[in-house]
Write a protein that binds this DNA or RNA. Sequence first.
RNA 1: GGGCUCGUAGUGAAGUUGGCCUAUCACGCCUCCCUGUCACGGAGGAGAUCGCCGGUUCGAAUCCGGUCGGGCCCGCCA
Length: 467
Amino acid sequence: MNRIWVTDTVSKVDEIVEVKGWVQSRRDHGKLIFIDIRDRSGILQAVFWGGGDKELFEKAGTLRSEYVVSLKGKVQKRGERQINPDLPTGTVELAVTELQILNDSETPVFEIEKAPEIGEELRMQYRYLDMRSPRMRDNLIKRHQIIKLVRDELDAEEFLEIETPYLTKGTPEGAREFVVPARLHTDKYFVLPQSPQQFKQLLMVGGVERYFQIARCFRDEDTRGDRQAEFTQMDLEMSFVEREDVMALNEKVLIKIVEALYPEKRIQQVPFPRLSYAEAMAKYGTDRPDLRENPDDPNLLAFAWVVDFPFFEKTNKQEHHGAEGEWTFTHNPFSAAIPEHREWLQNKQNIGDILTSQYDIVLNGYEIGGGSIRNHRPEDLRRVLEIIGHKPENIDRDFGHMLKAFSFGAPPHGGIAWGLDRLVMLLQNEPSIRDVMAFPKTGDSRDLLMEAPSDIPEKQLKELGLK
RNA sequence: GGGCUCGUAGUGAAGUUGGCCUAUCACGCCUCCCUGUCACGGAGGAGAUCGCCGGUUCGAAUCCGGUCGGGCCCGCCA
């Protein structure tokens, strides 16, 4: 395979090269035809002369938008007056001697160059066309680079990347879950994880010590511009650490992402400022304040940590969290209280005043991650579940596996999860999380390209015991 | 579960106090011309039952009801 990226032609003047890609546009001057060929790297102008190879020239005349072609020819330096300063390859062009049409194309439903101004419905329906635009291509490339950097950084810190199951058990806590019927279990159901929380804690019991995962999570809740039913977390957990250790590591990785991949951006304050929940609410009226000095600056990043959240709050919504008590947790039932309040938790004293070890990482007014130090002693987890009103028999039924695991020498541990899509969205200055996902879903979680969800055959329903 | 908003040629928009709409413009598409364009240029052409269903009216893209689809927000999202 001798094919090179079109942008690499800049350093190959006077060489014979082969490029492959899509016809972005054609400018036919009668006896001279220009083709802009596009591949993942960018765009290159190719030239065909009527005075040369007649068959080649006629073939060039049949090219249309989005035809897939292979071109061979000599890279030429452009004349002074022909240089296009707006194009990275604007100093060169390809004098084509061989043209192979690898595939033709219907007239695209929208012009690729105009993708940014096309309605989202159409962009989602024809995502494969939308992706050919520089905007989507750049989003996908940057997303890859961010994930790769996180992997490299965590690998250097001796983390293990471990996959946890997608077919798993539901918990009576938190978000509504997607349910999966299965042929071998016609009256029981798998549930898709809303996060790998329980598994990652079990990995800590298993002595893994440092785990991370780029994990898909599923929540059957209504969506938003920054929320999808199916999304990606950068999930990590560490043993023998305290709050400060987890926060410091994450801060380091976030700064590295910005420095390595967004040199044009400025982090407003390093180390990241820290606010208590009470302080944030008093000063900004929200627990995810936008601290930017200038919210109009697209290159300003105001990270902040928010800590010292109340562990519990009163609820009158009986159905909320499936518990029946007057208390519910604010973030995560697996969290530990801050060390100073552990005694209150154990004695169920001053419940409303107990602070959780929870830390949220906030960026420009969005929550991009959250974590905590966990309860590694079974009696502490049991106490939390009691406070939020779970009956003892339900605790053993729903959380028995965790309590049991913790009884076998669970190490102290804590971790965090990033909303990866949301982070990429903010770094890419995109208005919606959909723009940084290859195949996003609509507001009511439909896939317009695949047309999911959809009916399934009667036979399949019967096998699953659903009919 | 609730509120708001948008839907007009392939695409993006205009038109929406009912009649001047036999629906306008730009891009794209098709045919022809063009040797330096890169938002190429020139001449001509095709393409819209105004999301769908129903109603009001002498008359509906325009008003009303419903419905489908996209988006935003509240609830919800450990």
